[in-house]
């Protein structure tokens, strides 16, 4: 019974018009960027930025599933990204199919390997949570990175080169954009489903969720696998974009950078992650002079967002000055004036 109510709420949430608006936004952005690219009105640096935004958005969205919806802090996201990038690009480097098959094959191989890594890692750490889980995911990320250095065929510390590039930037962007949309659809469907609600229930209270008959372990593994598959796909896009990858591309710093995107965008807010990923990729590019201060800013932003979120003054501030409240106040004033007149 209760389930039905929730379902009908959800249905009314995505009405025809808002879905239409979303589709229009998605198509509009693609049309705008591709028009600029095809007419040659976009500088080279912006062309590559648009692809970089795409794979960073996929990374941020997938980490948000773990951090925002499952409520567990993973500091090893760069590890899954690395598995995808290396598996996919090794497939592309060491096979001799036509270009199209190689790209699709690389994505499949990368996603599958990252998924397997996600499955193995998450099913081995089911007992852990909180700080311990965070530190173990960090350790797994670093282990993946240090074993990439010694495994055969990965190019070692020097890196793996000779990965085929996208035929053109436009093709690359279309490809990456398609995967962003696919990621969004997968995540939206998952989160709005029964399974998604189970995952948020685990986040809000593990013991109560368990008492309701939710299989905690199965959901934890599912979330990790989905997130790592998506990170793996992002890794493949990254390696085709960069055409040469090295272990240092996948350091712990990258995991933190993705975490900053998720935290700034708001944990559990997909639109927020997209915007934050875009901002974090673009802003350092615009403010080249601030390059040295980039990491420092991330640090300050992380601390500030956390402190502001927890501060009681924030709640007061929102109560007084949020747009809705201000609008109501204005209306009320208007009413009073008309009454007195």
């Amino acid at each position: 019974m209760k389930n039905d109510i929730v379902k009908s709420e959800k249905k009314s949430n995505i009405t025809g018009s808002s879905l239409l608006i979303r589709i229009l936004v998605v198509v509009g952005i693609y049309a705008l960027v591709s028009a600029l690219m095809l007419t040659g009105n976009m500088s080279r640096s912006w062309e590559s930025l648009s692809i970089r935004i795409c794979f960073n958005v996929i990374l941020a969205l997938s980490l948000n599933l773990v951090v925002g919806f499952l409520g567990e802090l993973s500091l090893g996201h760069a590890g899954f990204y690395a598995v995808g990038a290396y598996a996919g690009s090794m497939f592309a480097v060491y096979t001799d199919f036509p270009m199209f098959v190689r790209i699709i094959g690389a994505v499949l191989v990368g996603a599958l390997s990252a998924g397997i890594a996600g499955f193995l890692i998450s099913s081995s750490i089911l007992k852990l949570k909180g700080d311990y889980l965070a530190i173990v995911t960090l350790a797994f990320g670093e282990i993946i990175r240090s074993f990439v250095k010694i495994l055969p065929g990965t190019g070692g510390t020097a890196g793996l080169s000779g990965i085929p590039a996208f035929p053109s930037r436009y093709v690359g962007f279309t490809f990456a954009y398609a995967f962003v949309i696919l990621t969004l659809i997968i995540l939206k469907c998952f989160i709005n489903s029964r399974h998604g609600r189970a995952v948020t229930a685990i986040r809000d209270n593990v013991i109560s969720a368990e008492m309701l008959g939710i299989n905690i372990n199965r959901y934890k593994v599912t979330v990790f696998v989905i997130a790592s598959v998506l990170a793996g796909v992002a890794g493949v896009i990254f390696s085709f974009f960069k055409t040469m990858i090295e272990p240092n591309d996948f350091s712990y710093n990258l995991s933190i950078e993705i975490l900053v995107m998720v935290v700034i965008g708001g944990m559990g807010n997909l639109t927020g992650s997209i915007i934050a990923a875009g901002v974090i990729v673009v802003v350092p590019e615009l403010l080249r002079a601030l390059e040295d201060y980039r990491m420092l800013m991330y640090a300050i932003v992380l601390i500030a967002v956390m402190l502001i979120n927890e501060s009681p003054k924030k709640a007061q501030f929102i109560e007084r000055y949020s747009p809705k409240v201000l609008l109501k106040k204005l209306l009320r004033k208007g009413e009073k004036k008309s009454e007195s007149a």
Partner: peptide, 17 residues
Amino acid sequence: PIAVLITAIGVSYLLQN
């Protein structure tokens, strides 16, 4: 706990940078 942990990571990053 997750908020505290993220803050601690922030502090670590801040000192390093």
